[in-house]
């Protein structure tokens, strides 16, 4: 009956890569992301007693990180009241003029989405949670997650379409759109 339980330390360790990926996707900044992960780990450690064994630890940790991130945004908003706010920083990079639709452009577009839409899109499209899990993490209804994801996708598509319309399809994007196999090629 006693399958040697992982130490809490090892258990948390396993999830650090996905916590970092989530934090970077949310905040768009790696340094800030790692601070968020750090705070998440400390909180998780303190509250491990309230984690129900056998349930989804990744979802539990994502919920903590998400809440840490929201408080961080609120704190920054209070601190930066004079300018356009938190979202002015690190966002104001114009799309590349050469029509090269690279990851950096995409990240910028992502950063400009409303918080709750970006969060929903990342949970579903990147972290690959179910809509039910995403709803629990975001603390909202399943239908709300679905509509946020749709709005996020449409907003990004509109923006990318616009760029495509202005510059024409550049060869790299054309290749990307042309159904190249995914990088991993695992099947």
């Amino acid at each position: 009956m006693t399958a040697a339980p992982q130490s809490p330390r090892d258990e948390l360790l396993v999830h650090i890569p996905s916590l970092r990926a989530f934090a970077v996707s949310l905040s768009g900044q790696i340094d800030r992301a790692d601070d968020l992960v750090q705070e998440t780990l400390v909180k998780a450690w303190r509250n491990l007693g309230s984690f129900t064994e056998g349930t989804n630890m990744r979802a539990w940790l994502f919920t903590i990180l998400r809440n840490v991130y929201i408080s961080d945004i609120r704190r920054r908003r209070r601190e930066v009241q004079d300018t356009d706010g938190v979202f002015a920083e690190g966002v104001a990079v114009a799309p590349a003029q050469n029509g090269h639709m690279d990851l950096a452009d995409f990240r910028n577009a992502l950063t400009e989405l409303p918080e709750e839409q970006r969060e929903a899109l990342i949970l579903i499209g990147a972290a690959e949670f179910s809509y039910e899990e995403a709803a629990e993490i975001a603390g909202c209804a399943v239908g709300t997650v679905k509509s946020r994801v749709n709005r996020a996708r449409n907003a990004l598509a509109k923006r990318l379409n616009l760029d495509v319309g202005e510059i024409g399809l550049d060869p790299e994007l054309r290749a990307a759109l042309g159904g190249m196999p995914a990088r991993s090629g695992s099947g």
Partner: peptide, 18 residues
């Protein structure tokens, strides 16, 4: 196509860190 592109970009950025 753009939707598929969005999906790939989203996942690529994430997996990069992962």
């Amino acid at each position: 196509d753009v939707q598929a592109h969005i999906g790939r970009q989203l996942r690529a950025g994430y997996v990069d860190i992962l």
